Simulated assay, not measured.
Amino acid sequence: MKNIVISGTNMVSEEIAKSLANSLSAELCKPIYKVFPDGESYVRLPCNVKDSKAIVVQSLINPQDKSIIEAILLGDAIKESGAKDQILITPYLAYSRQDKVFLEGEPISIRGILKIFSDYYNILATIEIHKEDSLKFFNKKAINIRPYTYMAEKIGFDSKNIAVLSPDIGAIDRAKILSSYLNCEYDYFIKARDRITGEITMQTKELDVKGKDIIVVDDIISTGGTILKATQILKNQGARNIYVMVSHALLLENAEEKLFSNGVNKIYAANTLPKKSKVDYIDVGPLIAKNLSAYLD
């Protein structure tokens, strides 16, 4: 059975789809795409996917709702065209941080989206969803790909005098994974909020960072506020170099400039989102191929 990789309709998806197809030695298919005058999306497959394993790559980037609709339409197209397996790769899975009800009356947004995807695809893979437990809402095979060891291998960190930190206890497993690969210490930041002023303070739990190169690891940078505060603390405590490693670099507003102007030496990210000028990106196409290989001929 042949494998066909179908690129999504944005540049991020096209780049990863091309890399994935090369890694799998698979056919690459670029759908015909247009927008009707009323704003509705149109897609058509120019390739024959009948009896194939059809792999759609669609990173759910801004505008997220449009990206989601296109992923649904592509899923319907490959199913209608007789694909034997329908596989969706969402390198960036939008709405994954809305994974529970915070205020009464809210939806669990990621649940709604994954339930829709499960109507069109029988396998879903993503790069580091915010909480892996959310993938239970996709009621078929779901794969959460953790890229940190792979990224560190590609970057080639000097493991001498280095340590790994997570911004909080909730991300400690990411620090453990990376520190195990680098054979170095790891720790996390403790956050505290002043009940009167509302100011948030952070400090490392135990680690002495003086003179060390520090890798701050997390799943996503959005506005960069937490990483910025962590960087300032690490600099005050005598850290030598500060590297940030994330799966998804949103870097909204002027977050990129703020981080680099306040002591961050490098930001490394997977290429799941549109690129920023000063970020070093790691192509995750080969990593996705490796994780899919067990499900492909």
Rank of each mutant, 00 (worst) to 15 (best):
G224V: 07
Q237I: 01
S277G: 14
L296R: 05
A171G: 13
A142W: 00
I172G: 08
T231Q: 00
G211P: 05
V101R: 08
A71I: 06
D76H: 09
A17R: 06
D99T: 02
P167N: 03
R111V: 05
L114I: 08
I108G: 13
Y181S: 08
R44M: 11
E15R: 13
N48S: 15
V279C: 04
A54H: 05
S166K: 00
K212C: 05
N262T: 07
K278H: 11
R240Q: 14
K176E: 09
I69K: 11
K275W: 03
G198W: 05
L259M: 08
G198A: 04
N48G: 10
S59M: 09
H130Y: 02
Y181L: 07
K275C: 09
S7H: 09
K176H: 07
G170I: 00
D187T: 07
N139S: 13
N262Q: 14
T231F: 02
P63G: 13
I110M: 09
Y33I: 11
K210S: 01
K154W: 00
D99W: 00
S180R: 10
Y268M: 11
I221H: 00
L259G: 02
E104T: 12
G238W: 01
K160A: 12
D133F: 03
V284A: 03
L234M: 11
A94D: 09
A289C: 12
V217R: 01
G170S: 05
H130K: 00
S59L: 14
H130G: 06
L296D: 05
Y186D: 07
L296Y: 03
S293E: 15
M151V: 10
G285N: 02
E14W: 10
V279G: 06
V244E: 12
A239S: 13
A289E: 06
S81G: 06
I155A: 13
I87C: 05
L273N: 10
D99M: 01
L228K: 06
V216F: 09
I113N: 13
V264E: 04
H130E: 04
C47Y: 02
A175D: 10
D187L: 03
L207N: 04
I190V: 15
M11C: 09
V216C: 10
T201F: 04
L88H: 12
K160P: 01
I288R: 08
